[in-house]
Simulated assay, not measured.
Amino acid sequence: MPKTEPFENFRERYEEWFERHRYAYLSELEAVKMLLPREGIGAEIGVGTGRFAAPLGVKLGVEPSRSMADLARLRGVEVIEGTAEDLPFEDESLDYLLMVTTICFVDDPEKALKEAYRVLKPGGAIVIGFVDRESPIGREYERNKERSVFYREAKFFSTAEVVELLKKAGFREFEFVQTLFHPLEEVKEIEPVKKGYGEGSFVVIKAVK
């Protein structure tokens, strides 16, 4: 069962995070933008309220939470209700896929990435943004997850674990960028985006089919 209940019931609280941590959100956007393909037909898996798809120009999204999908549609995203493990797309039909802070919520990450591989054209790319479990913010999230309505059931991953899942699904040609080099409450401006991983708490991986 997709973990939709907290997103159905606490959509406003979800939205408030982006307002409260505006510069962290804008830093994450910049990091994703750096690796996201500029051309082709793509979709965001776990599009949520469209906070990433809309400003990044991704016109299509998949989302299991009806409440979140409604808000994404208001932001101009065409949303299909569905899950990462059962994508509503034909084989080899998309040029790229985006997943931002979604991998920790899917029921079966291995199946989700195999599905992503199925629907991408040869040479197509997947871009995954997430909080690295082994980073300062990741360790804080892990420590306090029982207190969070959103993260209580989440499974956080290290960068190495996400790479391993991608390799198992058949992906190759990895690129990495990172941002958020301070605790969330200390992020008062847009943080730099650096290549690689291991320093910043938010990591973006691009991999090719």
Results as ranks from 00 to 15, higher is better:
P2D: 14
K3M: 03
T4N: 04
F7L: 02
E8W: 12
E8Q: 14
R13Y: 00
E15A: 04
E16P: 00
E19C: 01
E19V: 13
R20Y: 02
R22Y: 05
Y23Q: 04
Y23P: 05
Y23D: 06
Y25K: 04
Y25H: 09
L26T: 04
E28T: 12
E28K: 10
E28C: 10
L29C: 06
L29V: 11
A31W: 02
V32S: 01
M34D: 12
M34G: 07
M34W: 13
L35M: 09
P37Q: 07
E39N: 12
G40K: 12
G42R: 01
I45S: 04
R51W: 07
F52W: 07
A53C: 04
P55I: 10
G57L: 06
V58D: 00
V58R: 00
V58G: 00
V58K: 00
K59A: 07
L60E: 03
L60V: 11
E63P: 06
M68V: 11
A69P: 02
A69R: 00
D70G: 11
D70N: 12
D70I: 13
R73E: 15
L74R: 06
V77N: 00
V77M: 00
I80S: 03
E81F: 08
T83E: 02
E85M: 11
E85N: 08
E85P: 09
E85F: 08
D86Q: 11
D86Y: 09
F89Q: 10
D91V: 15
E92N: 13
E92L: 05
D95G: 13
L97S: 07
L97H: 07
M99I: 11
C104M: 00
F105Y: 03
V106N: 06
V106T: 13
D107P: 00
D108W: 02
E110Y: 03
A112S: 15
A112Y: 05
L113W: 08
K114L: 12
E115I: 04
R118H: 00
L120T: 03
K121Q: 04
K121F: 02
P122H: 01
G123R: 10
V127S: 02
V127R: 02
I128D: 02
I128P: 01
F130I: 05
V131S: 01
R133G: 06
E134A: 10
E134R: 10
S135E: 12
E142W: 07
R143L: 05
R143V: 04
N144S: 12
R147Y: 14
S148C: 05
F150P: 06
Y151A: 07
R152D: 01
A154Q: 01
A154T: 01
K155H: 10
F157M: 05
V162W: 03
E164G: 07
L166D: 06
K168Q: 09
F171D: 11
F171S: 12
F171Q: 14
F174I: 14
E175W: 09
T179W: 09
T179H: 08
F181L: 14
L184E: 10
L184P: 15
L184C: 12
K188D: 15
V193K: 05
K194E: 13
K195V: 15
G196C: 13
Y197W: 14
E199V: 15
E199Q: 13
F202S: 08
V203P: 09
A207E: 07
K209N: 14
